[in-house]
Write a protein that binds this DNA or RNA. Structure first.
Lengths: 224, 224
DNA sequence: CGGAAATTTGAGATCACTCAATTGCGGTGG
DNA sequence: CCACCGCAATTGAGTGATCTCAAATTTCCG
């Protein structure tokens, strides 16, 4: 990124914010006046129905842009919650158009990030709509592992994995109990290990085949 | 839209294309060199798994922008298929960045459309992940009816409804048989009528309550 | 060490699925 | 005009994956 672009981004930044694990970053039912870039940590986007059923829409890792959909709605889009301690860079929502005008390249990059996020939601929709429980779990483990891998978050084959089984269930559209039993089955087949909040993939090919999920080469992600 | 903007858009347009009902607009496994705006007709985006299971990701109505995700990937994103006769306006994919640079407002509008589409996929994900079969069907009927209504496509309470039950099943993550039975149950409750490819909502409030779906006010859609 | 939260397990219920056959309907050729 | 074809819609029956309920066990954290 050019020094000029960095300078422009700096000028749009309001400041840095931090949240503890489990804290809401964006309230599901209130319009937030800010946009964020996730600097460090894990978070997720979700929606809840009136009776409390919750669906996780996607997981957020460093580099992801947060809150764009709200720009074009009046609240009631989705909530964002931190899964680990998280630091974010905040922007003024109202200056987004100004940013596009002053620096089209950054606008283009934001669109890039939005399109990439939609692709991930598309994948999740296929998963919940058409895959069996084992396939869903296999899919999710590989998806998150690969994303973390691209970000250099893997150490000796292990990644931090801050999802509870409830998170996994809510992401995959399964019940907590069935998620647990499915996870156990895959573990007993020695396809993965999940210990103390860290994940290791033992049989990537088997999991990819089971989930019918294959890594596609990615272009480098723009930074905002 | 200003005369200036119209002129810019014209200069980026390659031409107009038309497809018959049932024809692929974008091949699921080949990278298309074009972007489209849907002028008239109904289409849908979908993905298929290796064994043929299909998930419909979202439905496309006039004004929707098609193919943006591909801009940032190398194929293998999703297919698009026409459900009725369809006319589209085609743009050169490679000139998208040029468009952002030359006319940031249009870039901003494209981002607007992308964000709106992601919101729809988010909703669909909640539906397949966390709603029962009846809730899913209620949701889909109301969603499509409301969208068509906003586009002025309702005549005396009836909308064209070109979805087969297979389409509905693939959109909602249900089997064809169960979709049929669920549809019948709602029809017998006199919540809707579905005859000869046209839909009428008899009890909008009941369907909205059943699907836990409530219309949110929408900002006017930008035109590309 | 105590208490709350997350995970694990078992058992039974149910919603949705598969299989299989029938019906309805628009088009097509004799 | 009618018999026939193919496809979508419909229905019935039985199966099974996933869910709910309930209780134990383990882990985490103060």
């Amino acid at each position: 990124m050019s020094a000029d672009e960095v300078r422009v981004i700096e000028s749009f930044r309001i400041g840095t914010r931090a949240f503890e694990a489990g804290r809401p970053v964006i309230d599901e039912f209130r319009l937030s006046g800010q946009l964020f870039t996730l600097y460090s940590g894990w978070a997720f986007r979700f929606k809840t129905l009136a009776d409390g059923r919750r669906q996780i829409l996607s997981f957020l890792l460093p580099g992801d842009f947060i809150g764009l959909q709200d720009e074009f709605a009046d609240g009631h889009t989705h909530g964002v919650e931190a899964m680990t301690a998280v630091t974010l860079c905040a922007f003024e929502r109202e200056r987004l158009w100004e940013l596009f005008r002053a620096h089209p390249k950054l606008g283009y990059d934001i669109t890039w990030l939005a399109a990439r996020e939609e692709k991930m939601v598309d994948d999740n929709l296929v998963t919940t709509g058409r895959r069996s429980a084992s396939e869903r779990v296999a899919m999710l483990l590989m998806h998150l592992y690969r994303r973390a891998e691209r970000l250099g978050m893997v150490r000796d084959g292990w990644v931090e994995f801050p999802l509870s089984q409830q998170h996994i269930a809510d992401a995959l559209g399964l019940s907590l109990v069935h998620t647990n039993k499915t996870l156990r089955r895959l573990r007993q087949l020695n396809l993965h290990r999940l210990e103390g909040g860290w994940l290791r993939i033992m049989e990537p090919h088997a999991l990819e085949k089971l989930g019918d999920y294959f890594e596609r080469p990615m272009q480098p992600t723009p930074l905002i």
